[in-house]
Design a protein around this nucleic acid. Structure first.
Length: 305
RNA sequence: GGCGCCAUAGCCAAGUGGUAAGGCAGAAGUCUGCAAAACUUUUAUUCCUCAGUUCGAUUCUGAGUGGCGCCU
């Protein structure tokens, strides 16, 4: 089976540098699995690698979606698979690099997403019911539909409760059924998964420093011109850490210092959640982010044997 | 120097003569169509120090220490 390398790790752990070195050594090309680097015009705050850093290595799924668009795992899965196929057709090694656990899982566990159109009207309807009758009411409805799935969903988890109802409305199937079907086709590639980690304190220190650098590089300008250009039509993209906080600052809701501290804090918490995600992936090989890059490249090469 | 107020976890903060709310941060976790999102769990044998009153004090009394405010 065709091998595909996967490199994950928390933000600021050195995924970019490692993946580019690896690509140079094994004639590879990179597929980004990052829910925010996918957006165009968001460069500084997402720590997108620039042309110079890429060193001529081709990158897929970076900046090819407009920040006003909706994008989600199902599109990612499709796009990533077609990128992997393209790389293989060139007889190169695909290297998936990313910090978005949900996206990584969609590949690594071979999850298929059937065509379901998002029914915004139904969602609005549900939102209204939440307002009128309370979330508890819909939670109970969801339990009636899919008791199994609701075992893992908290009565406070509005997002997931609504999703269970949406799936049933659109497909007539339960979430549990749909998920079973989504894994039917198996995993088409031999994914070799690596994750970078380092002592928490050092990681947090790197994050703090990187945020300062983003500010120096002009994050505020980047966000303010985006905001001027698109305003409230920025949907998912404005969930990004570093963007939503700058918008609050621009609106005068906090000081610059408070904004910077908030970005640092949110990024640290994000990194922690990312690690939780990667720890759960089976067959993952951990790399010490404090190691020399070539050293880690060698470890990966051994792991590919 | 005098008078007054305050002192509770890393931070903010409630509280009672009977054995410490809550929020934030931290830690751990969940995750199949917004995921850098959303959600869950968890965190002080101890309330500045010493002495006293009391069956029992973080809570009352006294002294000390530190901080804040006002006056001279």
């Amino acid at each position: 089976m065709q091998k595909v390398v996967v490199i994950c790790g928390p933000t600021a752990s050195g995924k970019t540098a490692l993946s580019i070195e690896l690509a140079k050594r094994i004639n590879g090309e990179i597929v980004s699995a990052d829910s925010m680097q996918i957006y165009d015009e968001m460069n500084i705050g997402t720590a997108k690698p620039d042309q110079e850093e890429m060193q001529g290595i081709k990158h897929y799924l970076i900046g090819n979606i407009k920040p006003t668009n909706r994008y989600s795992v199902s599109e990612f899965k499709k796009d990533a698979i077609s990128a992997i196929k393209e790389i293989i057709s060139k007889e190169k090694m695909p290297i998936v690099v990313g910090g978005t656990g949900l996206y990584v899982n969609s590949l690594v566990y071979g999850i298929d997403y059937p065509e379901i159109q998002t029914n915004l009207e139904y969602r609005k309807e549900l939102e209204k019911i939440v307002e009128e009758k309370g979330l508890q009411y819909l939670f109970e409805k969801a339990v009636e539909i899919d008791k199994e799935a609701m075992k893992n969903i908290s009565p406070n988890d509005k997002k997931r409760i609504l999703r269970v109802l949406e799936i049933y409305k659109e497909t007539g199937k339960t979430k549990t059924e749909l998920e079973r079907e989504s894994r039917k086709n198996g995993i088409p590639y031999d994914y070799k998964i690596f994750a970078i980690n380092m002592p928490r304190e050092i990681l947090y220190d790197r994050i703090n420093r990187r945020v300062d650098i983003m500010i120096e590089k002009g994050l505020i300008d980047e966000v303010s011109s985006l905001y001027e250009k698109y305003g409230e039509s920025l949907l998912t993209s404005m969930q990004a850490i570093g963007y939503k906080e700058v918008v609050e600052f621009l609106k005068g809701n906090c000081t610059k210092e408070e904004m910077i501290e908030k970005i640092k804090m949110e990024t640290r918490r994000y990194a922690k959640r990312q690690l939780t995600w990667f720890r759960k992936i089976e067959n993952i090989q951990w790399l010490d982010g404090l190691n020399d890059i070539q050293n880690n490249v060698n470890i990966i090469l051994e792991g590919l044997q």
